[in-house]
Computed example of a mutant assay.
Amino acid sequence: MCLLWPLAFAFALLVDRLFGEPPTWAHPVVAMGRYLGLFSKRLLSLPPRPAFALGALAWVLGALLVGGLALLLESALILSLAPWSSWPRLLLCAALLGLLLKPLLAWRMLADEVLAVERALQVSLEDGRSQLARLVSRDTSALSAEQVREAAIETLAENLNDSVVAPLFWAMLAGLPGAAVYRFANTADAMWGYRGQWEWAGKWAARADDVLSWLPARITAIAMSSLRPQALLRLSQQASRTPSPNSGWPMAAMALRLDLRLGKPGVYQLNAEGRAPQPQDLPAAIAYARRGLLASAFSLAALAAFLRLQT
């Protein structure tokens, strides 16, 4: 059974490539967002300490619920196929686990949305800004075409980790519950993990996501980078320029790989001596991200097989 999760990874990525996202009513990440939304108004009405406590409690309860349901599904699936002979059981179990894992991954949608930004820019700058606003939380109304492309490429790199590599990493370690809890943590960070009015209510969610994304973000970056020591040192130096302990890694890797200048005005700049993004750079960024995805997925699948072989 050491090949169970490698085959499940491959099946999940194949389903993603062929079919994309499930409908909204059946999407577990949408359900996670709805659960978190139940607490949002209440959290924002509380003073700092109660807001932090309730935010942490809601996060922990949600993580337990998500992880418990995932564990129940995984266990029921494996037990129900126990009477089958070895190879048919392995293939069917891997296919069904991959089908359950797929909604926790979102590569095809990410790549399609980023390419849509460039297509919209070919129509008008305003269309490009509007399309980008679907992907980022920052204000896009005053961005130039170059800045729109910068933000789209940064989003691609950051979400390559958040939406694909990190869920695979946690599935490698803890199966379906690991991937599900990670996606819950990342969704909570996306909804609550901000400064300002969310400073206290979202602090637990932000810190939990930082911890769970720490190693996957670096795996994602290295998978897109040259493995020469000098290149890795430069990657580390550039990644440290962002406020986030994690998102700078895949973004810096993409900036260095394409020799682009990427940044958020007034906040940070990566590879400052690089050139400004041009129309051909978004498809090129997707190609590099795809290679990083495949390298990461292959490595994590091999590790999953090794870990199961030891048990």
Rank of each mutant, 00 (worst) to 15 (best):
L97A: 10
Y35V: 09
L309H: 13
A174M: 12
S75L: 15
P50A: 10
L233T: 14
V30C: 04
A151N: 12
W84Y: 05
F39N: 01
R207A: 06
R149N: 02
A145C: 01
R183C: 07
I222S: 02
R129W: 11
D16G: 08
G20F: 11
D259Y: 00
S163H: 08
R129T: 10
W249K: 07
A70N: 05
S299K: 08
A31E: 05
S80L: 14
L212Y: 00
V148N: 02
E273S: 14
L156W: 13
V30N: 04
F11S: 13
P50V: 01
P283D: 11
W84I: 00
R241P: 04
G196W: 10
S240V: 05
R207D: 03
V15G: 02
W84G: 00
L260K: 02
L79D: 10
A157W: 11
D127R: 15
V211H: 04
S45A: 15
R218Y: 13
S247F: 01
Q310L: 15
S296R: 07
D162V: 05
E21G: 09
G248P: 07
L160N: 04
A252F: 10
R195V: 07
L71K: 11
E118W: 03
A180K: 00
A301R: 01
A76K: 12
A171M: 08
Q237H: 11
D281C: 13
L282F: 00
L232N: 08
A231S: 14
L160D: 08
L115R: 06
L105S: 01
L92V: 13
R207G: 10
L160M: 11
P23H: 13
M109G: 05
L14K: 08
L262A: 12
R207W: 13
L4G: 08
A179D: 07
R183N: 09
L92Q: 05
G175M: 11
L43Y: 07
V181F: 03
L156P: 09
R129I: 12
L14V: 12
Y194Q: 11
A120P: 09
L3Y: 01
G193T: 09
L57K: 04
A217K: 02
A10D: 09
L79T: 05
A206M: 08
V66I: 12
